[in-house]
Simulated scan of single mutants.
Amino acid sequence: MGYRRGFGDRRHRCDPTWASAEKGSKMLDALVGLVADSIRQLDETGWRYDLRQ
């Protein structure tokens, strides 16, 4: 089950012994991608962030 093992058990949340450089790298890449996509979208709309329809 990988990283999800013990997910529902509160004792295992934020347990750094489950961390690895590979998991950290994947998380960083995912977050950087999301931020970059958000910035691109904001640039395309002239930084108008309230575009509710």
Rank of each mutant, 00 (worst) to 15 (best):
T17L: 01
K26F: 05
K26L: 08
I39N: 12
G2R: 03
S20Y: 09
G2W: 09
R5G: 04
C14P: 03
R52Q: 02
D43T: 00
E22M: 10
R5L: 01
L34D: 12
D50T: 06
D9H: 09
R40D: 07
R13A: 07
H12Y: 15
R48W: 10
G2H: 06
W18G: 13
S38H: 15
T45D: 01
K23D: 13
V32H: 05
R10T: 11
M27I: 08
G8E: 01
G33A: 08
T45Y: 04
A21T: 08
C14E: 04
S20G: 07
Q53H: 05
I39Q: 12
Y49E: 06
R48K: 14
R10W: 09
W47A: 01
S25A: 02
I39F: 12
G8Q: 03
H12T: 15
V32S: 04
A21E: 12
R4Q: 06
R10V: 12
T45W: 02
D9Q: 09
T45S: 04
H12Q: 15
Q41F: 12
D50I: 07
A19T: 09
T17M: 02
Y3R: 03
G8V: 00
G46R: 09
R11L: 03
Q53V: 06
S38D: 13
G24A: 06
R40Y: 10
Y49K: 04
V35Q: 15
G46S: 11
Q41N: 12
G2E: 07
K26P: 00
I39H: 11
L51F: 03
L31H: 11
E44M: 08
L51N: 05
L31F: 11
Q53R: 08
A19C: 11
G2M: 06
V32M: 05
E44G: 07
K23V: 11
